[in-house]
């Protein structure tokens, strides 16, 4: 009945990485620490460690992605794994049957790990429930549900600047309703002990139920940004205008776009984050995105370390001293 245990093996170690929800604080700290160990690898002349030599990792992307797929690929290669990139046009697959068939085929090729992105919430859980017992599944984003590696790289970035999570006020601005990034960030921030998490946006994209996630809801950006330590801007999807959720990009920028002016309401040393890709002039002003408080590009760099950490932990080979030298 305890289906959330699916992420952990019988010894409580990470087996799949599907959602932050249900993972203990110590597990999240272990991921951050392991990523910290890996962050030096990218600075070396030879950017490789042989931890996953002989392992095969398949990137299954049912939805377009540049940044996430690339960083997963780089992370796998830096761990010396063999990488298969499979981009699947969802319109060509007819629902679950072919999805399972595809998994069976890849299993037959002795793949050790699936990195999955899919446009349906729950897809990663579904795949994890149906793979052979030796295979690990990493969720690279499922529908509006979860994007746990993105959330962890954001936590990694925050910790670099604000080491004590228990003293922070964090604001997330934008489409919480449809954002897997926001859901995972909120779980991570809560688990790591952040006392105040705010979400900011109109009610169409932050419905009343959002409070159940453990956040304070603000419909007024001026109020929501007061004295925050971290501002996380979410990408605004164009299709939100069509569903009568928002009137226009113009109005959205006016009300909820992050400008230098509005950023002044936050603490003077507040950092600005964005999971990318950025819509300049829609949710964020260029001068802020490129400004001194922005850590947006650093997030991308940290994405590689975090993904190396999660992949190596799930395959049980995360210690650099474990065989890093052979």
């Amino acid at each position: 009945m305890k289906q959330h245990d699916i992420q952990l093996d019988k010894d409580g170690k990470l087996r799949h990485f599907l959602t932050i929800e249900g993972l203990k604080k110590q597990m999240l700290l272990d991921i951050l620490d392991t990523a910290g160990n890996f962050s030096s690898v990218g600075a070396r002349q030879i950017k490789k460690v042989p931890l996953l030599r002989g392992k095969t990792i398949a990137n299954l992307f049912f939805e377009a992605s540049t940044r996430t797929r690339t960083t997963f690929e780089l992370a796998a290669k830096r761990l010396s794994a063999d990488v298969l990139n499979i981009n699947i046009n969802t319109s060509a697959t007819s629902k679950g049957e072919s999805l399972l068939d595809m998994l069976r085929n890849l299993e037959a090729m002795q793949v050790d790990m699936f990195v999955v992105r899919h446009n349906s919430s729950g897809a990663a859980h579904f795949i994890a429930q149906h793979v052979a017992p030796h295979i690990s599944v990493i969720n690279a984003g499922d529908g509006s549900h979860a994007h746990p590696t993105q959330a962890m790289l954001d936590m990694f970035t925050i910790r670099r600047y604000k080491p004590d999570f228990s003293k922070l006020t964090v604001a997330i601005v934008g489409d919480i309703m449809h954002s897997r990034v926001a859901r995972s960030q909120i779980h991570a921030l809560n688990t790591l002990g952040v006392p105040e998490i705010r979400v900011i946006g109109p009610q169409t994209i932050i419905p009343k139920e959002a409070a159940h996630l453990g956040v304070h809801v603000y419909h007024d950006m001026q109020q929501g940004l007061q004295n925050v330590d971290v501002v996380i801007m979410l990408r605004l999807q164009r299709e939100r205008m069509e569903g009568a959720l928002l009137p226009s990009e113009h109005e959205y920028f006016h009300m909820f776009g992050l400008t230098e002016e509005k950023l002044k309401l936050a603490k003077a040393d507040a950092i600005v984050m964005h999971p990318g890709p950025i819509n300049r002039g829609v949710e964020i002003e260029s001068s802020v995105a490129d400004g001194p408080q922005s850590v947006i590009l650093e997030q991308v760099t940290h994405g590689i370390s975090i993904r190396m950490a999660v992949m190596s932990m799930a395959l049980g080979r995360s210690s650099l001293t474990d065989g890093g030298q052979n």
């Binding site: 929800e21 919430s121 509006s144 549900h145 897997r180 859901r183 139920e209 159940h212 996630l213």
Partner: peptide
């Protein structure tokens, strides 16, 4: 059902 669970799981409610 549109509520706490659909919100948590990111399912359309």
């Amino acid at each position: 059902h549109e509520g706490a669970i659909s919100m948590r799981l990111g399912l359309p409610g």
